[in-house]
Amino acid sequence: MTKKIIGAPIMLPGGGTAPYSKAAEAGGLVFLTGQLGLGPDGKLAEGGIEAQTEAAIANIKAILAEAGCTLDDVVKTTVWLTDAANFAGYNKVYAQHFSASPPPRSTVVADFVLPGALVEIEVIAAARA
């Protein structure tokens, strides 16, 4: 089985590159790195869980597009929240983007390395032939 890396290397603030990729395609699937609610400026979206969920999904859409996919191709999501109290706000935004045929999903509560981050979403999508 071959693996294809999707996207350019991830640049770190100090000028180096991160030791992971945005996404990889293998075995007919596209695996994305978990996406935080970061805006185009690299800062956490302001406005709480809903704003960070929107930003995370926007990042997912952009990476999927690099792989020739859309949210309709997502076959599984894993979501981490820092606080179970944020579930309703996150779920509201998530449901707006995955309404037609929502993929299987796991949602767990965990701490994050990045202070202030409230949500991280990881997806697996079917690669388009």
Results as ranks from 00 to 15, higher is better:
D111W: 01
S21P: 00
P102G: 04
G7V: 01
L64C: 04
A125H: 07
A100C: 14
T77K: 10
A26N: 13
D72A: 11
S99M: 15
G37V: 08
E50G: 02
I60H: 08
D41M: 03
H97Y: 15
G27Y: 00
L44D: 12
P9A: 12
E122Y: 00
L71P: 00
T70S: 14
L32P: 01
P102A: 01
V109H: 10
L36W: 00
Y20V: 11
L71V: 03
C69I: 05
V123L: 08
G39P: 02
K61A: 10
G48H: 05
I60E: 11
E120H: 00
E120V: 04
A129I: 01
T77V: 06
I121V: 14
I5G: 05
A67K: 02
A85P: 01
P13F: 14
A126T: 08
R105D: 10
G27Q: 10
A65D: 11
V30M: 10
A24W: 14
I5T: 11
A95R: 08
T107E: 15
M11G: 06
P40S: 11
F87C: 03
V93I: 15
E25W: 12
G15N: 06
M11L: 15
P104V: 02
D83E: 10
K43M: 15
G16P: 02
A95K: 13
A65P: 01
G42D: 05
A129T: 02
W80N: 08
W80L: 12
V75T: 14
T78C: 02
A55E: 09
G39H: 10
L71N: 03
F112K: 04
E120D: 12
G7K: 03
L64T: 01
A85V: 01
G68S: 06
P13I: 15
A23L: 07
L38N: 08
A26D: 11
A45R: 09
S101T: 04
E120A: 03
F31M: 12
K61T: 06
V109I: 15
A23M: 07
K3D: 14
K43W: 13
A125L: 06
V79R: 06
A117H: 05
R128C: 11
G15K: 07
L118D: 11
L118C: 03
K76P: 00
V93P: 04
S106Q: 15
K61L: 09
I49Y: 09
G47R: 13
V108F: 14
H97L: 13
L71A: 06
G39E: 15
V113T: 12
R128Q: 14
E54P: 01
T107Y: 11
I10D: 14
V123I: 07
A95E: 15
F31D: 06
E54Y: 07
L71D: 13
G42W: 04
L71T: 05
G28H: 03
Y90A: 04
G42Q: 04
L36A: 09
E120Q: 07
L71Q: 10
G39M: 13
R105H: 06
